Amino acid sequence: MLTIKQERGVAKAASAAMLSILAFYRKNITDIMPPNCRFVPSCSKYMVEAIETYGAWRGFILSAWRVIRCNPTGGAGYDPVQWPPVGYKAGSFSS
Score class of each variant (00 low, 15 high):
residue 3 T to I: 08
residue 32 I to A: 13
residue 66 R to I: 06
residue 4 I to D: 12
residue 62 L to E: 04
residue 94 S to Q: 08
residue 19 L to E: 09
residue 66 R to A: 04
residue 11 A to P: 00
residue 51 I to L: 10
residue 63 S to M: 07
residue 63 S to C: 06
residue 89 K to R: 08
residue 37 C to R: 12
residue 58 R to C: 05
residue 60 F to L: 15
residue 78 Y to R: 05
residue 65 W to T: 14
residue 50 A to T: 08
residue 5 K to D: 03
residue 36 N to Q: 13
residue 15 S to A: 15
residue 63 S to F: 07
residue 48 V to S: 02
residue 34 P to Y: 13
residue 25 Y to G: 01
residue 31 D to I: 12
residue 13 A to E: 14
residue 94 S to K: 12
residue 71 N to E: 07
residue 39 F to W: 05
residue 47 M to T: 04
residue 40 V to N: 10
residue 56 A to C: 10
residue 21 I to W: 10
residue 92 S to Q: 09
residue 48 V to Y: 03
residue 55 G to C: 08
residue 5 K to T: 04
residue 50 A to C: 09
residue 90 A to N: 05
residue 75 G to R: 02
residue 65 W to K: 15
residue 10 V to F: 08
residue 43 C to L: 12
residue 92 S to D: 11
residue 88 Y to M: 03
residue 77 G to Y: 01
residue 78 Y to W: 07
residue 56 A to Q: 11
residue 37 C to P: 13
residue 42 S to M: 10
residue 29 I to K: 02
residue 35 P to F: 13
residue 5 K to S: 04
residue 14 A to Y: 13
residue 91 G to I: 00
residue 95 S to W: 15
residue 50 A to M: 10
residue 39 F to L: 05
residue 35 P to K: 15
residue 30 T to A: 10
residue 75 G to W: 01
residue 68 I to L: 12
residue 5 K to L: 02
residue 76 A to V: 06
residue 93 F to Q: 09
residue 69 R to C: 12
residue 11 A to Q: 13
